[in-house]
Each structure stands twice: as C-alpha cells, then as structure tokens.
Computed example of a mutant assay.
Amino acid sequence: MPVTEFSRLTLKKRLDEEQKPVAMRGLSRAKKLMENFTGYDFHLFQEIEDPNRIYIVGQWASVEQHMNEWIPSEANQGLLKELVSLIDVDYLFHIDVSLGSIPPNDKAPIFSVGKHVMESDERPGFESTFDKRRSDLEAHAPGSISGGWRIEKEPGREEFVLFVPWKNVDQHLAFAKTKEFERYAEIRDHLVLIATEIRHVALMELPPPAMENDAA
C-alpha cells in the first residue's frame, strides 16, 4: 500500500552563508534521487515560523520500500554522508494518506500542518468529532483539507496529521476567532495538547541538484 513520508529536518545553527546553499543543493539532489527511485513526486516545504526547518513529503510504494530498500541503498548512504554535517533529522514517519491529496494549491500557497496527538483510546472519539466538525474548517479553508494517521505509533498513542491550505497565516488565525472554530475546537477534548503542534509551511524553491562530484 502506498504511504506518504512525513519528515522534518533542521539546518544546523552553526551554518554560515556559504554552507546553506550547499545544504540546499544537497536537498535538491535528495529530492531528485528519491523521485527516480520511487517514480513518485516528492516535495520540500519550509516552515514559516522557523525557516531553518524543512519538511519532506513524498510517496513510497510501502514502508518496506522506504526503510528496507532506500535507506540502506548506496544513493541514500551517499546523501547521508553529504548532509550529516549540515542538517539534523528531527523525525521521520509515514502516514496513511495519498500524496496527491495534500495541499497547497494555486489559491492557497501555504498550508498548516497539524500533528494531533491523543491517547489510543481517544481515537474513536476524535474521529467522530472530527468527521462531525470538519465542515466548519472546510468552510474557511480555500481548498480541500487532507489528513492521515501515523503508521509508526508510539506506545499507547495515536497521531493524526492534518494538512489545511490557507492564503496566508493571517487567514488561519482569523478562523480561530469565528463561531465555526468554536465548534471545530471540540476536537481538543480528545487530544494531548502538550504534544499537539501546528505549523505553517510553504513550498520551497530549490536550486539545481548537487552532482556527486560537488563539494559538500
């Protein structure tokens, strides 16, 4: 079953202005190599709240293809060697949602990424409340929303990752002041709020990919 990778990278704080372009070219090369390996598109997004954070969203034929075939491959090991001094991997996991259903779109250049964490026994209640109230969110979002469940679960917990398109951050913040949001916010009753986070991201414009003989 195809799955979507959701991972977050952070540029190391000590990088100077000469090293950052090297990191960007390396990430561009990683994108190209993963697309060649899988036959699927991959996208890199930059966080608006912290531009040093970069998200990879891409599709794999299965978790096994990613973890057992790509990760130990010569191409990936070369990438890791190239990028290890430039970038930290904050997390990497897979969600059960099609890449093609994930925003943004032409009318909404950014989207919010919500990592909704709950105790396992709260999942049915969350699903019921979300299904009941999602129309309140959809009424304000300029495009289709999309979400999926984390496949690699922490013991006793579930995580639902929600992608919502917006024209800008202010539009999202304005939603929080509406009556529709008051109803939609009932999902909070099921969440571990201290572990739940929402960030905003925009599609990155990447330079041409670094070639194997480029200096890293």
Results as ranks from 00 to 15, higher is better:
residue 103 P to E: 03
residue 64 E to F: 05
residue 81 K to T: 12
residue 189 D to P: 09
residue 138 E to C: 05
residue 132 K to Q: 01
residue 184 Y to A: 05
residue 9 L to C: 03
residue 160 F to C: 07
residue 121 D to C: 12
residue 26 G to Y: 01
residue 100 G to N: 11
residue 162 L to W: 00
residue 144 S to L: 01
residue 96 D to S: 15
residue 176 A to N: 03
residue 31 K to C: 08
residue 31 K to T: 08
residue 17 E to H: 01
residue 207 P to N: 03
residue 38 T to F: 10
residue 47 E to R: 15
residue 153 K to P: 01
residue 189 D to K: 14
residue 127 E to R: 02
residue 211 M to D: 05
residue 73 S to A: 03
residue 92 L to A: 07
residue 151 I to W: 07
residue 196 T to W: 08
residue 177 K to G: 08
residue 50 D to K: 11
residue 64 E to Y: 09
residue 213 N to P: 06
residue 148 G to N: 04
residue 83 L to M: 14
residue 159 E to K: 14
residue 194 I to D: 15
residue 188 R to Q: 09
residue 205 E to H: 05
residue 60 W to Y: 12
residue 109 P to L: 02
residue 82 E to C: 11
residue 85 S to T: 07
residue 111 F to L: 02
residue 166 W to Q: 01
residue 62 S to A: 13
residue 174 A to W: 05
residue 46 Q to L: 09
residue 116 H to Q: 02
residue 65 Q to S: 10
residue 183 R to V: 07
residue 152 E to N: 13
residue 59 Q to L: 14
residue 160 F to P: 05
residue 13 K to N: 09
residue 214 D to Y: 04
residue 30 A to G: 02
residue 13 K to H: 07
residue 173 L to H: 07
residue 169 V to Y: 01
residue 141 A to E: 00
residue 89 V to C: 09
residue 43 H to T: 14
residue 102 I to R: 10
residue 209 P to T: 00
residue 138 E to W: 06
residue 41 D to C: 04
residue 121 D to K: 12
residue 149 W to E: 15
residue 112 S to D: 02
residue 150 R to S: 11
residue 41 D to F: 08
residue 216 A to D: 07
residue 143 G to N: 06
residue 145 I to A: 12
residue 215 A to R: 05
residue 113 V to R: 06
residue 138 E to L: 13
residue 12 K to V: 02
residue 197 E to W: 11
residue 212 E to K: 03
residue 180 E to S: 10
residue 163 F to W: 00
residue 171 Q to D: 00
residue 145 I to S: 04
residue 106 D to T: 12
residue 210 A to D: 00
residue 185 A to L: 06
residue 48 I to H: 04
residue 121 D to Q: 07
residue 97 V to C: 03
residue 205 E to R: 08
residue 92 L to S: 00
residue 93 F to Y: 13
residue 22 V to R: 11
residue 27 L to P: 07
residue 196 T to C: 11
residue 122 E to Q: 15
residue 115 K to P: 04
residue 111 F to D: 00
residue 213 N to Y: 12
residue 72 P to H: 01
residue 68 N to Q: 15
residue 195 A to E: 15
residue 119 E to Q: 05
residue 20 K to L: 13
residue 14 R to N: 12
residue 7 S to M: 14
residue 189 D to W: 11
residue 205 E to I: 00
